[in-house]
């Protein structure tokens, strides 16, 4: 869906993107990165709003640097900007209809689609109110509706939960999840909120200083490696802990009270834990493989130490 090769863009002496290499097959993808990582620049380059200094980026084979490619590409992309954006003095239906017309829908189709997508995002009777008077949550939904009006193949969503209260945030995430999974839309979701990405996306790309530092499926990145375990124990733990240490296994107590162990490299399975526990009369009530959180993955991607 998206092919990026050697993409570079600088603003004066600031290098926003530095020879970016990335291939995204499709589906819902989270684009993570700290401020200044180049996320917004990447979206602008994909839409053809900026000219790259070097390299190329294509969406479904369309090149945004040529006028024809840009037109074709923008017809197949729905963009939900991060900041507030409205067409002055238009109500919800008028705004979505007008933008549908500009995307290439006929007048009748644009009006029909406007009502359909406004229904979908839950802007019911409010659609006839002037959008300037909408609440933040309604404006976010309206922005999503206008991005969907022409039923694009790819959605570029820039911080879609920005400024939303918990209920509004949950509703927005449900919509994005539905679009990405049930409707099988290709989504590139820019966010600095890791739970948003974790809740809605299948894959993740981490950017740092204009380069991709980590990419892959969230399931795989946060998946168990067969060496880390969470334990629930009962009995006298001191001798058991000493025996584990003698075998090179550290029993740790996490902040939330969980106990975890990390088997040494080369350990084949967790049988050693059961053997030692039996020898020291400790009962193992539960044993689970430990999974990394997206936050840990993200921080690892940024090359920083994981939090204790």
């Amino acid at each position: 869906m998206i092919e990026i090769h050697g993409l570079s863009k600088s603003y004066g002496s600031v290098r926003a993107l530095d020879g970016l290499e990335l291939t995204l097959a499709g589906g819902p993808v989270g684009l993570l990165g700290p401020n200044g990582a180049g996320k917004t620049t990447l979206i602008k380059l994909l839409l053809g709003l900026l000219e790259p200094d070097a390299g190329s980026a294509t969406i479904a084979g369309q090149d945004p640097t040529t006028p024809a490619g840009r037109r074709a590409l923008r017809a197949s992309v729905g963009y939900m900007p991060e900041s507030d954006c409205l067409i002055p003095r238009m109500n919800g239906v008028e705004l979505v209809t007008t933008l549908g017309r500009l995307s290439g829908l006929t007048a009748t189709d644009a009006l029909t689609r406007a009502h359909e997508v406004l229904d979908y995002v839950g802007l019911d009777e409010a659609r006839y109110r002037i959008a300037d008077d909408y609440s933040t949550g309604m404006k976010q939904r309206l922005k999503l509706a206008q991005a969907l009006v022409h039923d694009p193949a790819l959605l570029l969503l820039d911080e879609p939960t920005n400024g939303l209260d918990p209920k509004g945030r949950r509703e927005m995430l449900e919509l994005v999840h539905d679009l990405g999974h049930a409707q099988e839309k290709n989504i590139l979701l820019c966010s600095h909120l890791l739970p948003d990405v974790e809740a809605t996306c299948r894959d993740v790309v981490v950017l740092k200083q204009g380069r991709v530092t980590l990419t892959g499926a969230i399931e795989e990145l946060t998946g168990a490696d067969g060496r880390g375990f969470e334990l629930e124990l009962d009995g006298e733990l001191a001798p058991f802990e000493a025996a584990l240490a003698a075998d090179g296994i550290a029993l740790r107590r996490e902040r939330d009270g969980r106990r975890t162990v990390e088997l040494p490299a080369g350990a084949r399975d967790a049988d050693v834990l059961f053997a030692l526990a039996a020898r020291h009369e400790v009962r193992i009530l539960a044993l689970r493989e430990r999974r990394a959180t997206l936050e840990q993955v993200f921080l690892a991607g940024l090359g920083r130490e994981e939090r204790p």
């Binding site: 923008r74 017809a75 900007p81 900041s83 954006c85 409205l86 067409i87 500009l102 300037d132 206008q146």
Partner: peptide, 12 residues
């Protein structure tokens, strides 16, 4: 009002 953000993301 940021309407240009919406316009120029279209084939306009």
């Amino acid at each position: 009002r940021g309407a240009h953000l919406l316009y120029f993301a279209r084939p306009l």
